[in-house]
Design a protein around this nucleic acid. Structure first.
Length: 440
RNA sequence: GUAGCCAUAGCUCAGUUGGUUAGAGCAUCAGAUUGUGGUUCUGAGGGUCGUGGGUUCGAGCCCCAUUGGUUACCCCA
Protein backbone atom coordinates (compact mmCIF):
# COMPACT_ATOMS: atom_id res chain seq x y z
CA UNK A 1 0.00 0.00 0.00
CA UNK A 2 1.23 3.45 -0.87
CA UNK A 3 1.11 5.83 2.08
CA UNK A 4 -0.49 9.20 1.67
CA UNK A 5 -2.90 11.64 3.28
CA UNK A 6 -6.27 12.45 1.72
CA UNK A 7 -6.50 15.28 -0.75
CA UNK A 8 -6.08 18.70 0.81
CA UNK A 9 -4.79 17.37 4.14
CA UNK A 10 -1.24 17.40 5.47
CA UNK A 11 1.00 15.97 8.15
CA UNK A 12 2.80 18.41 10.40
CA UNK A 13 6.34 17.49 11.39
CA UNK A 14 8.06 18.72 14.57
CA UNK A 15 9.57 21.87 13.03
CA UNK A 16 6.22 22.82 11.55
CA UNK A 17 4.43 22.03 14.78
CA UNK A 18 6.76 24.21 16.82
CA UNK A 19 5.99 27.06 14.44
CA UNK A 20 2.28 26.38 14.33
CA UNK A 21 2.19 26.25 18.10
CA UNK A 22 3.93 29.60 18.19
CA UNK A 23 1.06 31.02 16.13
CA UNK A 24 -1.55 29.30 18.30
CA UNK A 25 0.13 30.52 21.48
CA UNK A 26 0.35 34.08 20.19
CA UNK A 27 -3.32 34.17 19.29
CA UNK A 28 -4.40 32.38 22.47
CA UNK A 29 -2.49 34.83 24.63
CA UNK A 30 -4.16 37.80 22.94
CA UNK A 31 -7.60 36.16 23.16
CA UNK A 32 -7.15 35.64 26.87
CA UNK A 33 -5.83 39.19 27.30
CA UNK A 34 -9.13 40.46 25.94
CA UNK A 35 -11.22 38.29 28.22
CA UNK A 36 -12.23 35.46 25.93
CA UNK A 37 -12.70 32.00 27.45
CA UNK A 38 -11.98 28.73 25.63
CA UNK A 39 -14.49 26.15 24.54
CA UNK A 40 -14.35 23.17 22.23
CA UNK A 41 -17.11 21.47 20.29
CA UNK A 42 -17.18 18.08 18.53
CA UNK A 43 -15.61 17.62 15.13
CA UNK A 44 -18.99 16.50 13.87
CA UNK A 45 -22.37 18.11 14.13
CA UNK A 46 -25.82 16.98 13.14
CA UNK A 47 -26.10 17.76 9.45
CA UNK A 48 -29.24 19.70 10.17
CA UNK A 49 -27.28 22.07 12.41
CA UNK A 50 -25.00 23.05 9.55
CA UNK A 51 -27.23 22.98 6.48
CA UNK A 52 -28.60 26.25 5.19
CA UNK A 53 -26.22 28.47 7.15
CA UNK A 54 -23.49 29.05 4.60
CA UNK A 55 -25.41 29.80 1.43
CA UNK A 56 -25.94 27.55 -1.53
CA UNK A 57 -22.25 27.15 -2.36
CA UNK A 58 -21.28 26.63 1.26
CA UNK A 59 -23.80 23.84 1.76
CA UNK A 60 -22.21 21.92 -1.10
CA UNK A 61 -18.85 22.05 0.65
CA UNK A 62 -20.02 20.44 3.88
CA UNK A 63 -18.29 17.10 4.49
CA UNK A 64 -21.12 14.67 5.09
CA UNK A 65 -20.62 11.51 7.06
CA UNK A 66 -21.89 8.34 5.45
CA UNK A 67 -24.59 6.57 7.46
CA UNK A 68 -23.45 3.30 8.96
CA UNK A 69 -24.85 -0.17 9.33
CA UNK A 70 -28.50 -0.69 8.64
CA UNK A 71 -29.01 2.93 7.67
CA UNK A 72 -26.40 2.63 4.97
CA UNK A 73 -28.01 -0.49 3.57
CA UNK A 74 -31.34 1.24 3.40
CA UNK A 75 -29.59 4.11 1.58
CA UNK A 76 -30.83 6.62 4.14
CA UNK A 77 -29.38 10.13 3.80
CA UNK A 78 -26.49 11.33 5.99
CA UNK A 79 -27.40 12.67 9.41
CA UNK A 80 -24.01 13.95 10.51
CA UNK A 81 -21.29 16.10 9.05
CA UNK A 82 -17.87 17.53 9.90
CA UNK A 83 -17.98 21.12 11.02
CA UNK A 84 -17.57 23.71 8.29
CA UNK A 85 -16.62 26.58 10.59
CA UNK A 86 -16.62 27.36 14.30
CA UNK A 87 -19.31 30.02 14.32
CA UNK A 88 -22.37 27.90 13.65
CA UNK A 89 -21.37 25.19 16.16
CA UNK A 90 -20.79 28.02 18.61
CA UNK A 91 -24.31 29.35 18.04
CA UNK A 92 -25.65 25.85 18.64
CA UNK A 93 -23.51 25.62 21.78
CA UNK A 94 -24.79 28.94 23.11
CA UNK A 95 -28.41 27.93 22.71
CA UNK A 96 -27.82 24.56 24.28
CA UNK A 97 -25.91 25.98 27.26
CA UNK A 98 -27.75 29.29 27.59
CA UNK A 99 -28.65 28.70 31.22
CA UNK A 100 -25.04 28.13 32.27
CA UNK A 101 -23.57 31.08 30.43
CA UNK A 102 -23.04 34.64 31.57
CA UNK A 103 -23.87 37.13 28.85
CA UNK A 104 -22.29 38.84 27.08
CA UNK A 105 -20.41 35.60 26.54
CA UNK A 106 -16.90 35.93 25.11
CA UNK A 107 -15.44 32.71 23.86
CA UNK A 108 -12.47 31.62 21.85
CA UNK A 109 -12.08 28.34 20.03
CA UNK A 110 -9.15 26.88 18.09
CA UNK A 111 -10.05 23.72 16.21
CA UNK A 112 -9.91 22.23 12.76
CA UNK A 113 -12.72 22.65 10.28
CA UNK A 114 -13.33 20.74 7.05
CA UNK A 115 -14.52 21.77 3.63
CA UNK A 116 -15.07 19.45 0.69
CA UNK A 117 -13.32 21.88 -1.60
CA UNK A 118 -10.74 21.60 -4.37
CA UNK A 119 -7.40 22.33 -2.78
CA UNK A 120 -5.18 25.05 -4.23
CA UNK A 121 -2.81 27.70 -3.01
CA UNK A 122 -3.73 28.62 0.55
CA UNK A 123 -6.74 26.36 0.42
CA UNK A 124 -6.96 23.10 2.30
CA UNK A 125 -9.75 20.67 2.99
CA UNK A 126 -8.75 20.45 6.64
CA UNK A 127 -7.56 23.61 8.34
CA UNK A 128 -7.58 25.28 11.72
CA UNK A 129 -9.57 28.30 12.61
CA UNK A 130 -9.03 30.41 15.71
CA UNK A 131 -12.24 32.21 16.53
CA UNK A 132 -13.14 34.87 19.04
CA UNK A 133 -16.80 35.82 19.37
CA UNK A 134 -18.88 37.95 21.71
CA UNK A 135 -22.48 36.92 21.88
CA UNK A 136 -25.33 38.58 23.74
CA UNK A 137 -24.14 42.14 23.23
CA UNK A 138 -25.21 44.47 20.47
CA UNK A 139 -22.64 47.09 21.43
CA UNK A 140 -20.42 48.25 18.61
CA UNK A 141 -17.59 48.48 21.11
CA UNK A 142 -17.22 44.76 20.45
CA UNK A 143 -16.41 45.50 16.83
CA UNK A 144 -13.95 48.15 17.95
CA UNK A 145 -12.30 45.72 20.34
CA UNK A 146 -12.06 43.00 17.70
CA UNK A 147 -10.25 45.36 15.34
CA UNK A 148 -7.78 46.16 18.09
CA UNK A 149 -7.41 42.47 18.82
CA UNK A 150 -6.69 41.63 15.18
CA UNK A 151 -4.16 44.43 15.01
CA UNK A 152 -2.47 43.13 18.15
CA UNK A 153 -2.26 39.56 16.89
CA UNK A 154 -0.70 40.52 13.56
CA UNK A 155 1.55 42.98 15.25
CA UNK A 156 2.83 40.22 17.55
CA UNK A 157 3.26 37.95 14.54
CA UNK A 158 5.08 40.77 12.78
CA UNK A 159 2.91 40.68 9.66
CA UNK A 160 1.72 43.97 8.17
CA UNK A 161 -1.93 43.62 7.19
CA UNK A 162 -4.82 45.52 5.74
CA UNK A 163 -8.03 45.28 7.74
CA UNK A 164 -10.96 45.80 5.43
CA UNK A 165 -14.26 46.59 6.98
CA UNK A 166 -17.72 47.03 5.56
CA UNK A 167 -21.30 46.65 6.70
CA UNK A 168 -24.02 44.42 5.37
CA UNK A 169 -26.59 47.12 6.13
CA UNK A 170 -24.78 49.43 3.75
CA UNK A 171 -24.83 46.74 1.09
CA UNK A 172 -28.53 46.18 1.74
CA UNK A 173 -29.10 49.93 1.47
CA UNK A 174 -27.31 50.06 -1.85
CA UNK A 175 -29.40 47.22 -3.22
CA UNK A 176 -32.48 49.01 -1.97
CA UNK A 177 -31.80 52.43 -3.48
CA UNK A 178 -30.88 51.05 -6.87
CA UNK A 179 -34.18 49.19 -6.87
CA UNK A 180 -32.83 45.63 -6.70
CA UNK A 181 -33.51 44.79 -3.07
CA UNK A 182 -34.04 41.11 -3.85
CA UNK A 183 -30.74 40.75 -5.68
CA UNK A 184 -28.52 41.85 -2.80
CA UNK A 185 -26.52 38.63 -2.83
CA UNK A 186 -25.86 38.76 -6.57
CA UNK A 187 -24.91 42.43 -6.41
CA UNK A 188 -22.53 42.07 -3.48
CA UNK A 189 -20.91 38.97 -4.90
CA UNK A 190 -20.34 40.81 -8.16
CA UNK A 191 -18.86 44.00 -6.70
CA UNK A 192 -16.74 41.91 -4.35
CA UNK A 193 -14.80 40.89 -7.45
CA UNK A 194 -13.96 44.46 -8.42
CA UNK A 195 -10.30 44.02 -7.52
CA UNK A 196 -10.03 40.94 -9.64
CA UNK A 197 -12.08 41.57 -12.76
CA UNK A 198 -12.40 45.37 -12.87
CA UNK A 199 -15.40 47.59 -13.43
CA UNK A 200 -16.29 46.15 -16.79
CA UNK A 201 -16.13 42.60 -15.46
CA UNK A 202 -18.40 43.52 -12.58
CA UNK A 203 -20.91 45.20 -14.85
CA UNK A 204 -20.88 42.24 -17.16
CA UNK A 205 -21.58 39.90 -14.28
CA UNK A 206 -24.40 42.17 -13.08
CA UNK A 207 -25.99 42.08 -16.51
CA UNK A 208 -25.63 38.31 -16.42
CA UNK A 209 -27.50 38.23 -13.11
CA UNK A 210 -30.40 40.10 -14.68
CA UNK A 211 -29.81 43.34 -12.81
CA UNK A 212 -31.56 46.23 -14.59
CA UNK A 213 -29.53 48.65 -16.65
CA UNK A 214 -30.83 51.52 -14.57
CA UNK A 215 -29.67 49.85 -11.36
CA UNK A 216 -26.24 49.16 -12.77
CA UNK A 217 -25.99 52.78 -13.84
CA UNK A 218 -26.89 53.93 -10.34
CA UNK A 219 -24.20 51.66 -8.96
CA UNK A 220 -21.39 53.18 -11.02
CA UNK A 221 -20.44 56.20 -8.86
CA UNK A 222 -20.05 53.81 -5.96
CA UNK A 223 -17.88 51.26 -7.72
CA UNK A 224 -15.76 53.90 -9.37
CA UNK A 225 -15.30 55.99 -6.24
CA UNK A 226 -11.84 56.41 -4.81
CA UNK A 227 -11.10 58.39 -1.70
CA UNK A 228 -10.66 58.44 2.03
CA UNK A 229 -12.96 56.73 4.48
CA UNK A 230 -14.55 60.08 5.31
CA UNK A 231 -15.18 60.77 1.63
CA UNK A 232 -16.67 57.33 1.17
CA UNK A 233 -19.00 57.83 4.11
CA UNK A 234 -20.02 61.21 2.74
CA UNK A 235 -20.84 59.71 -0.63
CA UNK A 236 -22.76 56.87 0.97
CA UNK A 237 -24.77 59.26 3.10
CA UNK A 238 -25.93 61.09 0.04
CA UNK A 239 -26.58 57.95 -1.90
CA UNK A 240 -28.42 56.14 0.85
CA UNK A 241 -30.41 59.01 2.30
CA UNK A 242 -33.67 57.28 1.41
CA UNK A 243 -32.72 53.93 2.84
CA UNK A 244 -33.31 53.43 6.54
CA UNK A 245 -31.15 50.33 6.72
CA UNK A 246 -28.39 51.95 4.69
CA UNK A 247 -28.35 54.93 7.01
CA UNK A 248 -28.12 52.63 9.99
CA UNK A 249 -25.12 50.92 8.46
CA UNK A 250 -23.36 54.22 7.85
CA UNK A 251 -24.06 55.27 11.42
CA UNK A 252 -22.48 52.07 12.69
CA UNK A 253 -19.40 52.52 10.54
CA UNK A 254 -18.99 56.12 11.60
CA UNK A 255 -19.14 55.08 15.24
CA UNK A 256 -16.59 52.31 14.80
CA UNK A 257 -14.17 54.51 12.88
CA UNK A 258 -14.64 57.35 15.31
CA UNK A 259 -13.85 55.12 18.28
CA UNK A 260 -10.88 53.59 16.55
CA UNK A 261 -9.48 57.01 15.68
CA UNK A 262 -8.65 57.36 19.37
CA UNK A 263 -6.32 54.37 19.20
CA UNK A 264 -3.22 53.89 17.20
CA UNK A 265 -3.18 50.60 15.33
CA UNK A 266 0.39 49.39 15.36
CA UNK A 267 0.61 47.13 12.37
CA UNK A 268 -2.49 47.46 10.28
CA UNK A 269 -4.11 49.86 7.92
CA UNK A 270 -7.83 50.04 8.40
CA UNK A 271 -9.91 50.57 5.33
CA UNK A 272 -13.59 51.00 4.64
CA UNK A 273 -14.12 48.86 1.57
CA UNK A 274 -17.54 49.22 0.05
CA UNK A 275 -16.84 46.32 -2.28
CA UNK A 276 -16.21 43.88 0.56
CA UNK A 277 -19.08 41.39 0.68
CA UNK A 278 -18.07 38.06 2.24
CA UNK A 279 -20.00 34.97 1.39
CA UNK A 280 -21.37 33.68 4.64
CA UNK A 281 -25.08 34.28 4.71
CA UNK A 282 -25.47 34.91 8.40
CA UNK A 283 -23.71 38.29 8.62
CA UNK A 284 -26.00 41.26 9.19
CA UNK A 285 -23.80 44.15 10.30
CA UNK A 286 -20.10 44.85 10.24
CA UNK A 287 -17.94 42.50 8.18
CA UNK A 288 -14.16 42.16 8.36
CA UNK A 289 -11.54 40.74 6.14
CA UNK A 290 -7.78 40.78 6.58
CA UNK A 291 -5.12 40.32 3.96
CA UNK A 292 -1.38 40.30 4.37
CA UNK A 293 0.20 43.37 2.83
CA UNK A 294 3.31 41.43 1.81
CA UNK A 295 3.77 38.08 0.11
CA UNK A 296 1.98 36.28 -2.68
CA UNK A 297 -1.10 35.00 -0.87
CA UNK A 298 -4.00 37.04 -2.17
CA UNK A 299 -6.73 35.38 -0.15
CA UNK A 300 -7.76 36.51 3.30
CA UNK A 301 -6.04 35.26 6.44
CA UNK A 302 -8.71 36.41 8.84
CA UNK A 303 -12.34 37.35 8.56
CA UNK A 304 -15.50 37.90 10.53
CA UNK A 305 -18.53 39.97 11.18
CA UNK A 306 -21.71 40.55 13.10
CA UNK A 307 -24.64 38.15 12.98
CA UNK A 308 -27.87 39.29 14.57
CA UNK A 309 -29.82 36.11 14.75
CA UNK A 310 -27.71 33.04 14.24
CA UNK A 311 -29.10 31.48 17.43
CA UNK A 312 -32.66 32.08 16.28
CA UNK A 313 -32.90 28.89 14.23
CA UNK A 314 -31.91 26.91 17.31
CA UNK A 315 -34.65 28.50 19.38
CA UNK A 316 -32.98 31.49 21.01
CA UNK A 317 -34.03 34.60 19.10
CA UNK A 318 -32.80 38.19 19.38
CA UNK A 319 -29.26 37.41 20.49
CA UNK A 320 -26.68 39.35 18.54
CA UNK A 321 -23.08 38.28 18.22
CA UNK A 322 -19.92 39.37 16.49
CA UNK A 323 -16.74 37.46 15.89
CA UNK A 324 -13.59 36.94 13.90
CA UNK A 325 -11.74 33.91 12.66
CA UNK A 326 -8.01 33.55 12.08
CA UNK A 327 -6.96 31.13 9.37
CA UNK A 328 -3.95 29.51 10.96
CA UNK A 329 -2.80 27.58 7.93
CA UNK A 330 -2.74 30.62 5.70
CA UNK A 331 -1.02 32.68 8.37
CA UNK A 332 1.57 29.91 8.58
CA UNK A 333 2.08 30.09 4.82
CA UNK A 334 2.51 33.86 4.94
CA UNK A 335 4.98 33.71 7.84
CA UNK A 336 6.95 31.01 6.03
CA UNK A 337 7.13 32.97 2.80
CA UNK A 338 8.18 36.15 4.60
CA UNK A 339 10.77 34.31 6.72
CA UNK A 340 9.13 35.53 9.89
CA UNK A 341 10.00 32.38 11.80
CA UNK A 342 13.72 33.03 11.67
CA UNK A 343 14.24 35.25 14.68
CA UNK A 344 11.95 33.40 17.04
CA UNK A 345 13.32 31.74 20.14
CA UNK A 346 12.05 28.17 20.34
CA UNK A 347 14.47 27.03 23.02
CA UNK A 348 11.78 26.57 25.61
CA UNK A 349 10.00 24.18 23.30
CA UNK A 350 12.89 21.94 22.34
CA UNK A 351 15.44 19.76 24.12
CA UNK A 352 18.26 21.69 25.72
CA UNK A 353 20.38 18.93 27.19
CA UNK A 354 21.15 15.39 26.04
CA UNK A 355 22.77 12.82 28.30
CA UNK A 356 25.22 10.66 26.38
CA UNK A 357 27.05 7.68 27.81
CA UNK A 358 29.57 4.93 27.17
CA UNK A 359 27.73 1.98 28.62
CA UNK A 360 24.91 0.58 30.62
CA UNK A 361 26.23 1.62 34.02
CA UNK A 362 26.80 5.16 32.81
CA UNK A 363 23.37 5.21 31.21
CA UNK A 364 21.74 4.19 34.48
CA UNK A 365 23.68 6.89 36.29
CA UNK A 366 22.36 9.48 33.79
CA UNK A 367 18.88 8.14 34.34
CA UNK A 368 19.18 8.87 38.03
CA UNK A 369 20.22 12.48 37.33
CA UNK A 370 17.42 13.29 34.93
CA UNK A 371 14.53 13.97 37.34
CA UNK A 372 16.41 16.74 39.07
CA UNK A 373 17.32 18.40 35.78
CA UNK A 374 13.78 18.22 34.51
CA UNK A 375 12.39 19.45 37.82
CA UNK A 376 14.55 22.54 37.35
CA UNK A 377 12.64 23.33 34.18
CA UNK A 378 15.32 22.21 31.76
CA UNK A 379 14.17 20.18 28.77
CA UNK A 380 16.44 17.14 28.88
CA UNK A 381 16.62 13.65 27.52
CA UNK A 382 18.75 10.55 27.70
CA UNK A 383 20.01 8.64 24.66
CA UNK A 384 18.10 5.42 25.05
CA UNK A 385 20.34 2.95 23.22
CA UNK A 386 23.81 1.64 24.01
CA UNK A 387 25.84 2.83 21.10
CA UNK A 388 28.88 4.74 20.00
CA UNK A 389 29.26 8.28 21.25
CA UNK A 390 29.45 9.50 17.66
CA UNK A 391 25.97 8.34 17.00
CA UNK A 392 24.72 10.02 20.13
CA UNK A 393 26.36 13.29 19.13
CA UNK A 394 24.86 12.96 15.67
CA UNK A 395 21.49 12.67 17.30
CA UNK A 396 22.11 15.83 19.31
CA UNK A 397 23.16 17.71 16.20
CA UNK A 398 20.22 16.56 14.17
CA UNK A 399 17.80 17.58 16.88
CA UNK A 400 19.74 20.80 17.39
CA UNK A 401 20.24 20.07 21.05
CA UNK A 402 22.72 22.76 22.15
CA UNK A 403 24.32 20.98 25.15
CA UNK A 404 25.28 17.43 26.03
CA UNK A 405 26.58 15.72 29.13
CA UNK A 406 29.04 12.91 28.50
CA UNK A 407 29.31 10.17 31.09
CA UNK A 408 32.00 7.50 30.94
CA UNK A 409 34.05 5.61 33.44
CA UNK A 410 35.90 8.72 34.66
CA UNK A 411 32.74 10.70 35.27
CA UNK A 412 31.13 7.75 36.99
CA UNK A 413 34.04 7.54 39.44
CA UNK A 414 34.51 11.25 40.11
CA UNK A 415 30.86 12.28 39.99
CA UNK A 416 31.92 15.24 37.85
CA UNK A 417 30.20 15.32 34.48
CA UNK A 418 31.67 16.33 31.15
CA UNK A 419 29.52 19.23 29.98
CA UNK A 420 29.83 20.11 26.32
CA UNK A 421 28.64 23.07 24.31
CA UNK A 422 27.82 21.60 20.91
CA UNK A 423 28.16 24.86 19.01
CA UNK A 424 31.69 25.68 20.21
CA UNK A 425 32.89 22.20 21.11
CA UNK A 426 34.14 23.52 24.45
CA UNK A 427 33.78 21.17 27.38
CA UNK A 428 34.36 21.32 31.09
CA UNK A 429 33.91 19.20 34.20
CA UNK A 430 30.85 20.20 36.19
CA UNK A 431 28.69 18.71 38.91
CA UNK A 432 25.06 18.10 38.07
CA UNK A 433 24.08 21.16 40.14
CA UNK A 434 26.50 23.31 38.18
CA UNK A 435 25.09 21.99 34.92
CA UNK A 436 21.60 22.91 36.05
CA UNK A 437 22.78 26.33 37.16
CA UNK A 438 24.39 26.87 33.77
CA UNK A 439 21.27 26.01 31.78
CA UNK A 440 18.62 27.66 33.91
C1' G B 1 -18.75 21.42 -11.33
C1' U B 2 -15.00 23.60 -15.46
C1' A B 3 -9.86 24.12 -17.35
C1' G B 4 -4.32 24.04 -17.54
C1' C B 5 0.28 21.85 -15.78
C1' C B 6 2.95 17.86 -13.40
C1' A B 7 4.10 12.50 -11.98
C1' U B 8 11.73 9.15 -12.53
C1' A B 9 15.38 6.52 -5.48
C1' G B 10 12.95 8.35 1.28
C1' C B 11 13.33 14.04 -0.53
C1' U B 12 14.60 17.75 -4.60
C1' C B 13 15.38 16.98 -9.49
C1' A B 14 18.45 15.70 -14.46
C1' G B 15 17.61 12.21 -18.36
C1' U B 16 19.52 14.59 -25.92
C1' U B 17 15.07 13.75 -32.53
C1' G B 18 12.61 7.12 -29.11
C1' G B 19 18.42 3.38 -28.86
C1' U B 20 23.09 -0.72 -24.55
C1' U B 21 22.95 -1.94 -17.78
C1' A B 22 18.17 5.05 -15.89
C1' G B 23 21.77 9.29 -13.16
C1' A B 24 23.08 13.48 -9.51
C1' G B 25 22.61 16.13 -4.91
C1' C B 26 20.58 15.59 -0.18
C1' A B 27 19.06 11.83 3.27
C1' U B 28 20.07 6.63 5.25
C1' C B 29 23.72 2.84 6.68
C1' A B 30 28.89 1.36 7.20
C1' G B 31 34.17 2.52 7.41
C1' A B 32 38.64 6.07 7.93
C1' U B 33 38.22 7.11 14.17
C1' U B 34 37.04 1.15 20.46
C1' G B 35 36.20 8.58 25.14
C1' U B 36 34.16 13.23 21.19
C1' G B 37 30.06 15.23 16.91
C1' G B 38 28.55 18.92 13.42
C1' U B 39 33.14 20.56 8.41
C1' U B 40 36.46 16.06 5.23
C1' C B 41 37.34 11.39 2.60
C1' U B 42 35.84 6.19 1.05
C1' G B 43 32.15 2.63 0.25
C1' A B 44 27.15 0.43 0.32
C1' G B 45 21.96 -0.18 0.04
C1' G B 46 17.86 1.94 -2.29
C1' G B 47 13.87 2.23 -8.93
C1' U B 48 8.09 -2.91 -11.89
C1' C B 49 10.25 5.56 -14.37
C1' G B 50 2.09 6.69 -10.78
C1' U B 51 -1.26 2.62 -12.94
C1' G B 52 -3.47 0.07 -17.33
C1' G B 53 -3.47 -0.34 -22.46
C1' G B 54 -1.48 1.04 -27.41
C1' U B 55 2.28 2.52 -31.45
C1' U B 56 7.37 0.62 -32.48
C1' C B 57 12.60 -3.95 -34.02
C1' G B 58 13.04 -0.95 -29.45
C1' A B 59 9.27 3.56 -24.86
C1' G B 60 11.26 7.10 -18.79
C1' C B 61 10.49 9.88 -23.63
C1' C B 62 5.11 9.22 -28.52
C1' C B 63 -0.63 8.11 -28.26
C1' C B 64 -5.20 6.81 -25.32
C1' A B 65 -7.36 5.92 -20.70
C1' U B 66 -7.08 6.11 -15.45
C1' U B 67 -5.38 7.62 -10.55
C1' G B 68 -2.90 11.12 -7.60
C1' G B 69 -0.75 15.99 -6.95
C1' U B 70 -0.86 21.06 -8.20
C1' U B 71 -2.68 25.83 -10.22
C1' A B 72 -6.70 28.89 -11.95
C1' C B 73 -12.23 29.67 -12.31
C1' C B 74 -16.73 29.22 -8.94
C1' C B 75 -16.50 29.85 -3.81
C1' C B 76 -13.66 30.52 0.51
C1' A B 77 -9.82 30.99 6.30
Amino acid sequence: MKPGTPKGTRDFSPTEMVRRNYIFDTIRTVFQRYGYAPIETPAMENLETLMGKYGEEGDKLIFKILPRGEKLQKLLPPEEALRYDLTVPFARYVVQHQNELTFPFKRYQMQPVWRADRPQKGRYREFFQCDADVIGSASLLNEVELVQLMDEVFSKLNVPVTIKINNRKILAGIAEVIGEKEKIVEITVAIDKLDKIGVEGVNKELVGKAISTLAIEKLQPLILFKGSTDDKLKLLKKLLENSAIGKKGIEEMEYIFQQLSNFKLSNSSLELDITLARGLNYYTGAIFEIKAREGTLSSSICGGGRYDDLTGVFGLPNVSGVGISFGIDRIFDVLTELNKFDGIDYSRLTTKLLFTHFGEGEQNYCLSLLPKVRASGINAELYPDLTKIKKQFDYANKKQIPFVVVVGGDELQSGMLTFKDMSTGAQEKLSIDQVIERLK
